[in-house]
Write a protein that binds this DNA or RNA. Structure first.
Lengths: 208, 208
DNA sequence: TCGACTTTCGGAACATGTTCCGAAAATAGC
DNA sequence: GCTATTTTCGGAACATGTTCCGAAAGTCGA
């Protein structure tokens, strides 16, 4: 009695969920940067090209797997006070400012901004729209921003697993001009800058 | 009389400026995405691996070439009215918001923000700092953001040469959650959103 | 003149993502 | 059973970035 699976043709040797599970195993072992198509195929005991019958490309595969990790990040609790809610919105927007125009706006919107609405939504739309306005076609922007997406979710993953915050270090060599400005305005302490900028965002969001 | 070049060893068959010029030729012909190491070497009539004796990797090469293009972008003229200067600052910041955390902040800072100073500088520092605070180590962030840098400068190049603005099109499929929000707040017209967001940024920048 | 030294060159090889296309393995119809 | 059909599999091949290492081509000192 041949095993039937409800349709014609050669039976699949694996499935998309199995592929994602194997990818998770590799990521947990060595990190998402070390995931290669051939390694993943070896982990599954199949040929490398077979993967391309289950996912469009490696890009789609990583998006699928890393999105699973992103869903593990607990969402912040929304305060009752509207002004405090605005603070949460501003913080969320700051995450978007850190380099997540599309993908991160999507991710963030899914869990948080959709419940805030109003000016926060508008400002995020401004952020997202700015990328397009700067000359991006959506297709290319999505492709480029995806690497940011990988990176950010990869960092989220690190945080989930290690519960440790990576050391925050600025290398002046990486930002010579900003560093030069910092020398000309030595009064700009890091904490002051943070609070000032956050206040700027919040005051811009608050109604008069 | 053997040609002397002032030092010992086999004479170089090419130089870094020649490599950059050849890269520019390829970029002008087919765009920066089509630049490959082997193609560039063929353009120069040398072996592919020889390039690695003049630049560290393709990354450095593209940064060098595209930075030349970036320098061609004319800087906006600074208005006299301080409040109008703030508008220019806000616009510049919006460019940074579009996804240029480090490299673009550098690029923008070099020509513009360094002359504005004050709160504009602080807010850009907030933007840049946010990336680090979200868990980026500078090394990896620079690496990831570099692709944005390529992309953005590539677009600048397109604009320089064609003087045409790429069509601005939003594909709702790329941003399902934002699109869903847009449907729930249909009153958010694009122009209103733009002005509101710009006003939010400006009012946050202006002193009380 | 001639060997020693120094610097650069570039072919061969490797890792990786991806595509092509024929083989393999099941079912369906007769 | 046997052929046709359908679906999946995966080896071979290709493009690309990069490294290794021996060959090539100069200068320098005796």
């Amino acid at each position: 009695m041949p095993a039937t699976h409800g349709r014609t043709g050669r039976p699949p040797v694996t499935s998309r969920p199995e592929i994602l599970a194997a990818a998770r195993r590799l990521i947990d072992a060595d990190g998402w940067e070390k995931v290669t198509v051939r390694r993943l195929a070896a982990e599954l005991g199949i040929g490398a090209t077979t993967l391309y019958h289950h996912v469009r490309d490696k890009d789609e595969l990583l998006v699928l797997v890393l999105s699973e990790y992103a869903r593990q990040v607990p969402l912040p609790v929304l305060p009752e006070d509207p002004r405090e809610r605005i603070v949460v919105a501003a913080t969320t927007i700051r995450q978007a400012l850190a380099g997540w125009p599309w993908a991160a706006a999507e991710f963030t919107t899914d869990g948080l901004l959709g419940r805030l609405g109003g000016p926060a939504v508008q400002l995020v739309e401004v952020i997202v729209g700015a990328a397009v306005e700067c000359g991006c076609t959506p297709e290319r922007a999505v492709h480029v921003f995806r690497s940011l997406w990988y990176y950010t979710v990869g960092e989220i993953l690190v945080r989930i697993r290690s519960r440790a915050r990576p050391p925050v270090v600025f290398a002046p060599a990486d930002t010579p001009h900003l560093s030069a400005i910092g020398e000309r305005w030595p009064a700009l302490a890091a904490q002051d800058t943070y609070e000032m900028g956050l206040r700027a965002l919040i005051s811009g969001l608050l109604p008069e």
